[in-house]
Simulated scan of single mutants.
Amino acid sequence: MPAEPDDRAGHARPAGPGLAGGIRLALTTFTVLPVRPGRVDRATAGAAMALAPAVGALLGAVLAGTLLLLAAVAAPLVAAGVTVAVGALLTRGLHLDGLADTVDALGSYRRGAAALEVMKKPDVGPFGVAALVVVLLVQAAALAELAGRSWPAALAAVVTATAAGRLGVTLACRRGVPAARPDGLGALVAGTVGPVAAALGTAAVAVVAVAAVPGRPWQGPLVVLAAVAVAVPLLRHVVRRLGGITGDVLGAAVELVTTLVYLGLVLTR
């Protein structure tokens, strides 16, 4: 986490600088853009987590462009596979790493500190490997199908799925959700997002999803809401097992929600 936390009481930042800092922090947290966030406090962290779906939409536009350009000169599955790889590169692979670590911790059947120790191990266990394989296969298969749609629909679908994945982070950081550790990214962002920001983020992603499935304007928003309905109780389960959220849990939320939305958007029969 390339930010220096500042949790000193009574030093709240003005709304303008706080928002600017939140944008910078969101960009450096969710992409490889070399943005310097500077010193951040929990208000800035909350702004960054609330803005996560917007950063996801920007990333989704890049991935959609990659998919459509490659699909014009290569087989759909090849274009999809490269697009998945580009997505991992543009996010440093952090979300995939978080998914593997979180699933390994849950698969260990341990709780609290013991489960957190499993997450800290540098190796990836069989549960984590299986989760990575399933997620990458589903995402690649879905992108291959989307490559055959009209470019507006494909663009809307990829933007929706990528933004929805970051919406998972927004929801994981909502008020009332604790951090599993006293330090790290989870401690900085846990409980920083209010209900209004979470609701606005969900609504914005649902609106973008209207154009994701040609002839079915209802399907995209329904898929987004269904993915949220699945992710929220799963996050509650993770919090019960671990004692709160961590940076790895946020990465797992990104990949879980992204995959669920991709899957729902290609179910057209």
Rank of each mutant, 00 (worst) to 15 (best):
M1G: 15
M1Q: 11
P2Y: 03
A9R: 12
G10Y: 01
A15N: 06
A15F: 15
A20F: 02
I23N: 03
R24C: 04
T31E: 12
V32S: 09
L33H: 01
L33Y: 01
V35E: 07
A43F: 05
T44F: 00
A45H: 01
G46D: 06
A50L: 03
P53Y: 01
V55E: 06
V55K: 04
G56N: 06
G56E: 01
V62F: 13
L63V: 10
L63A: 10
G65M: 07
L67T: 12
L69V: 14
L70Q: 08
L70A: 15
A71S: 14
A72E: 13
V73F: 11
A74P: 05
A75L: 13
V78H: 06
A79R: 02
A80H: 11
G81C: 13
G81A: 14
V82C: 02
V82R: 00
G87S: 12
L89Y: 00
T91E: 12
R92M: 08
G93W: 00
L94A: 15
H95K: 07
L96I: 11
G98N: 03
G98C: 04
L99S: 08
D104S: 07
D104C: 07
D104L: 05
G107F: 10
G107E: 12
Y109H: 14
R111S: 03
R111T: 01
G112W: 00
L116A: 01
E117L: 08
V118T: 06
M119T: 04
P122T: 11
G125D: 05
G125M: 10
G125V: 11
G128I: 11
L132W: 04
V135H: 13
V135F: 05
V135C: 14
L137V: 15
V138Q: 12
Q139S: 04
A144T: 06
A144E: 05
A144G: 11
A147M: 10
A147S: 12
S150N: 06
A153F: 10
L155Y: 09
L155R: 01
V158R: 09
A161Q: 13
T162W: 04
A164H: 04
A164N: 11
A164C: 10
R166F: 03
L167F: 13
G168M: 05
T170P: 09
A172E: 03
C173E: 08
D183Y: 12
G184H: 09
L185C: 10
G186D: 04
G186L: 08
A187L: 06
L188D: 01
G191K: 11
A199K: 03
T202E: 15
A203P: 00
V205Q: 12
V205P: 05
V205E: 12
V210I: 15
A212Y: 04
V213P: 02
G215K: 07
W218C: 03
W218G: 10
G220F: 00
L222A: 15
L222M: 14
V223S: 09
V223E: 13
L225T: 08
A226P: 02
A226M: 04
A231C: 10
L234G: 14
L235H: 11
H237P: 00
H237V: 07
H237R: 15
V238M: 06
R240E: 02
R240H: 11
R240A: 09
R241C: 13
R241A: 15
G243V: 03
G247D: 14
D248N: 10
L250T: 06
E255N: 07
V257L: 00
T258P: 02
T259E: 06
T259M: 12
Y262I: 07
Y262D: 10
V266L: 09
T268Q: 13
R269C: 03
